[in-house]
């Protein structure tokens, strides 16, 4: 999916827990999430902590969209 979107010339960032798979499939901009069943908010933590994590990582994803890259890149969180 990511590849087709990028082929169409639309800039895309993939937020995924399984970064090795995202890389293998051919994603170019990647931001790690924290798990498969709850990518952007651990239900064992407080609502506030979940919100902070999500706000932060979505921010990293937006910055990734605004960053020119030369090769497949995993953005640090």
């Amino acid at each position: 999916m990511v590849k087709e979107i990028e082929k169409a010339g639309i800039t895309v960032v993939q937020m995924a827990n399984l970064i090795p798979i995202a890389k293998t499939v051919g994603s170019n901009r990647m931001v790690p999430t924290i798990s498969i069943p709850y990518p952007l908010g651990d239900p064992k933590t407080s609502k506030e902590e979940q919100w902070k994590l999500r706000y932060h990582r979505v921010g990293v994803a937006l910055d990734a969209l605004a960053t020119d890259i030369e090769e497949q890149t995993v953005f640090a969180v």
């Binding site: 990511v2 087709e4 169409a8 995202a22 499939v25 952007l40 994803a61």
Partner: peptide, 29 residues
């Protein structure tokens, strides 16, 4: 299947283009 995913993406892209979407955040689980 990868082929199915690619086909679905192409169908979605038509809507994205029609509305002038500049970028996408795609979340995977």
């Amino acid at each position: 299947a990868e082929g199915e995913a690619a086909r679905m993406a192409l169908e979605i892209i038509e809507y994205l283009k029609a509305d002038g979407v500049d970028a996408v955040i795609l979340t995977s689980t």
